[in-house]
Design a protein around this nucleic acid. Structure first.
Lengths: 241, 241
DNA sequence: GTTGACCCTCACGCTGCGTGATACTCTAAA
DNA sequence: TTTAGAGTATCACGCAGCGTGAGGGTCAAC
């Protein structure tokens, strides 16, 4: 059958079939003297296969490998693709999260007093930066600093709100459900500032009590809050393992 | 500061800054006689803004518009972007769903007897196709048929399994929680075959009882199943409105 | 003055086609 | 039998956001 018929049947464009021919992914069985591509049933079946894998997000290159090598490990390829898709979704989720918060912020739902703006900390002058650089690598720290700067203005009041939420439960057991849920919010908020692993999160908690500048700032929201956060963060990191 | 310093600070490549200069997104304040780009504090701040919007998935073009036009409607842009991201995630979810099912299938978790393979229906010779074309447009029908062909082999047994699941609850009220949950699975499965709106879903249910070829096939799984499905699907569509 | 780290400007490559431009081929109606 | 119209062919640029050399200046330190 001629190219348009095949294209219509499969729901793709003629150009797409041209392209697949160009890159050698799907070459029609027959070509007439006039140069017309004629697609056979077998060609169509292969096309179905191609479109199937394409739907799963495989690149044309990979599809070529999968289809041409009958010994290719399909299940492994599927697994890998599956993981890649999950990662993509995570990134998307983070983007959606951020944008939702930004929208809430722009809408002014978070009513911020001028004073509150300056309640928080300046991570960018973090005295532990050098230490952090040694422990987690320059890249992570730079990324984090840069993120903090970005969100500095728009996120400050959210952090403060969370401090108050934490202060409200800081008399509880750091391992309690409420405490862990609240510290989980803290964890997710920090995720927006960089890729914290649970271990980094634990380390951060330790800083909160090890450096008195942190401790004093945090304890303004409630006496002993820094220590409580440290314990809760350690517990949280344990459970993440 | 020179380009590498700026790039390192922001966590991007030198080439990226070159590119932003090329497209006029971020032009350095100063250029030395030797042609060196020198970035000012203001340049860096703009870069932060750029990276912020980039994180949200905005294209460089849109970022340019957003940053250059102070009257640009940020909230609307954010809303649009938000919707676009949600759509992306839906597509991703469908892909993930499909791939998970394919993996389960390849693993042989779904044990399929040869006989079962032919238990299902052939949508591609659907007698209602003409009718469907008139009601939903050629494009939707073609897309659906093509999808069905693609999944024909690998999805057939899943559909049959779902028929049996439906048969297991078809003595219940079509509006009951269990019934609606199960019919919801049916809805999501059909989503893989095309973009069914709730109204299309309802129409499909009506076909199940209106055409006896459908009815007979469905009722093989349980007497009165077709009618039950029609009612459950109508209810499901109602709730989706 | 020489090295080495940076800097510059082209310019092609990558992904998966869309979209013309230009020209040939085939089929059915006039 | 001519001719219009639908279909087909082959270039080849465009898009998004840079990565990655190639080939060649610049600058500070030794």
């Amino acid at each position: 059958m001629k190219i348009k018929e095949a294209a219509d049947l499969a729901g793709v464009s003629v150009r797409t079939l041209h392209h697949y021919d160009e890159i050698g992914l799907l070459t029609p069985d027959t070509v007439t003297d006039a140069g017309y591509r004629l697609y056979s049933e077998a060609n169509l079946e292969k096309l179905q296969q191609i479109l199937f894998f394409k739907e799963l997000g495989f690149s044309l290159q990979k599809i070529q490998v999968i289809l041409e090598d009958p010994d290719f490990d399909r299940s492994e390829a599927l697994q890998l693709q599956h993981e890649a898709l999950l990662e993509k979704r995570q990134r998307l989720d983070r983007m959606i999260n951020t944008i939702e918060k930004t929208i809430r912020h722009e809408k002014g739902e978070i009513d911020m007093s001028r004073k509150e703006k300056f309640e928080g900390f300046d991570f960018s002058t973090n005295p532990y930066e050098e230490e952090a650089r040694r422990r987690w690598g320059d890249e992570a720290v730079d990324r984090s600093n840069e993120k903090v700067k970005q969100f500095d203005q728009s996120k400050q009041e959210e952090m403060n709100a969370l401090y108050r939420e934490l202060a409200a439960v800081h008399h509880l057991d750091p391992a309690s459900k409420e405490a862990q849920e609240t510290i989980g919010k803290w964890y997710r908020m920090l995720q927006q500032f960089g890729n914290y692993t649970p271990e980094m999160f634990r380390g951060l908690g330790e800083m909160y009590v090890a450096d008195e500048r942190f401790t004093k700032n945090i304890d303004r929201f409630g006496t002993g809050l820094a220590r409580f956060m440290k314990d809760a963060m350690a517990e949280f990191a344990d459970r993440k393992k």
